[in-house]
Write a protein that binds this DNA or RNA. Structure first.
Lengths: 324, 324
DNA sequence: TTGAAAGCGTTACCAT
DNA sequence: ATGGTAACGCTTTCAA
């Protein structure tokens, strides 16, 4: 259980070589090692159960090969799925990820960033939404996902285009009034998804339907759903800007004794696994989480200084809630 | 963006003291420092933007204050919520957590364990279910959550008692036939939750209802649900051993045009957030994730060698799917 | 109260 | 092809 750790010194001694040689065989470089010596070292490593100490290596090399990931809430399925994708990408590159939640609180996020920097992460992934943190003294590459950060690279889903495509689809079903459930604007400007919703309506010559602004949560969606249902101009379709909200909307509709999609159609943005088994299964505009993860990790590790935002197209997934 | 890192040496120089003194003030020990010197050092730290290098510290101290966490699937809400709870507990103790998924694959889990050990984690949390890994050369404390591991401490939800309580509740509603949706047995023995289900039935003098064995997934639950509905002895209530499965069961029932709970009652084990907004909201036996997390982290950090299993009681949460 | 220096496990340069 | 060794940034003992 708690044996004394085997160091590279022990291996060298056992194999009758210098520590440098052990290093050469462990790292397959930078110098060649004769086959027989190599074999001896390998044998020593096996016998002794030697495991290289990544901490010492990191100190020496100046890189931990560790990524830091901060999401607003690790318990949120969207962020959990994103995190999983990031871990997978990182793992494929020999990186490991320190994941933590900021609880949507700027101070907490700031503290977490500091902690991760102290831990010498090689790069930082910051996921929306939280207020912009102070990044002035950050000395590692950062990429923001679904979030615009001054002086940080950013990778995003095409919120606006995706939303528009989703709402277009709803309109295609003949709906003339499409309600919107969306979060509160963070920076005073209307959120991208709201813009996409407007784009679609406008293009179809329709009036903007009722809007319910609420939190990005199931509960928020539920409240918003009730609000929309109670409105004098009750919409015949609802576009929810997140899965969580959509699920809440669904509950509100069920409670009202209404049917989805016959009485009201629903379409959600995000497309986490949960939506596939809601009742009815939700048609969604799916965020390309794997792509976002891939791009983010690639940028961080390969250090494309490209600070310009990269946007990834979403995917319209048709299920039952839209009326297809 | 990429400035040269400020070391403790720079601080010492700037403050006109030795590096030892800087250490004393940063760590508030082990020696006292005169107020004015201390102030100079603090000032230097502030001006220079010095951030201690945790890697070097870890090397010197022999501990990284980092926990490793391996779940079968970080995208699974249950594990995501557990991970969040663990991160919170760890964070409160100044620890940070390296989280990764094993995809339910023993080889992957083994590889991840090796990677984390190389990273010198101070402790390892292994979450069920995967086949037992080889832990022989692990030299850090391990705690298994909801999983029995030879030579590892373990913290678990009271599966059997919780299941029994849930099924008892169903029986209390007058159900005489309670079906079971459960995973495949991993070690040949019947799973705890199945035992609990049997306990309740037996105690009530009821026959064991139909059982559908499937995967721990929404899809698995859906298939199992259809199976149970098609059975000649269709049960009037179903106990699902996980949220994911319950959600699948719900879908199968809806598709069959049946009503929950009027035609069939459903009760699930786990109690993740998703169940609160399913339709209808699921009554659940909730796993005490925060407690599990707290106990696991405490054991790891404080190193209670107590290898005996600790079990935490579950919580019966009544919502609508049981018929209350 | 403060400073010098050893040493944690590596890597890689410079010798040999 | 291999060995000796300095250095990475830090903590802490020992001396002053």
């Amino acid at each position: 259980m708690t044996k004394a750790p085997v160091t590279r010194n022990d291996v060298a001694e056992y194999a009758g070589v210098s520590t440098a040689v052990v290093s050469y065989v462990v790292n397959e470089g930078p110098r060649r090692v004769s086959p027989e010596t190599r074999e001896r070292v390998l044998e020593a490593i096996r016998v002794l159960g030697y495991r290289p100490n990544a901490t010492a290596r990191a100190l020496r090399m100046g890189t931990t090969r560790t990524l830091g990931l901060i999401t607003p809430d690790g318990g949120n399925p969207l962020f959990a799925e994103l995190a999983k994708a990031i871990d997978k990408e990182a793992g494929a590159r020999g990186y490991v990820v320190l994941q933590t939640s900021a609880d949507g609180d700027p101070d907490t996020e700031h503290a977490k960033i500091a902690e991760l920097l102290t831990r010498q992460v090689s790069g930082l992934v910051l996921v929306a939404p939280t207020e912009d943190p102070d990044l002035s003294d950050v000395d590692v590459p950062i990429v923001a996902i679904n979030r615009e950060l001054p002086a940080a690279s950013s990778v995003r889903s095409q919120y606006r285009e995706g939303a528009r495509q989703g709402v277009d689809h709803l309109i295609g079903h003949g709906h003339r009034s499409v309600g919107l459930v969306i979060g509160h604007s963070r920076d005073g400007r209307p959120p991208e998804r709201e813009l996409g919703w407007r784009d679609a309506l406008e293009h179809a010559g329709l009036e903007a339907g009722p809007i319910a602004r609420t939190t990005f949560s199931r509960r928020g969606g539920y409240d918003a759903g009730r609000e929309l249902l109670a409105a004098t101009n009750r919409p015949t379709a609802i576009f929810a800007s997140s899965d969580l909200q959509a699920v809440g909307v669904l509950r509100a509709i069920h409670e009202a004794g209404l049917n989805v999609p016959d009485d009201i159609a629903v379409l959600a943005f995000d497309g986490t696994a949960e939506t596939e088994y809601s009742w009815p299964p939700l048609s969604v505009v799916r965020q390309p989480l794997e792509q976002l993860a891939h791009q983010a990790v690639t940028r961080l590790i390969d250090g494309q200084d490209a600070v310009e935002a990269l946007t990834c197209p979403t995917d319209l997934i048709i299920r039952r809630s839209c009326g297809c």
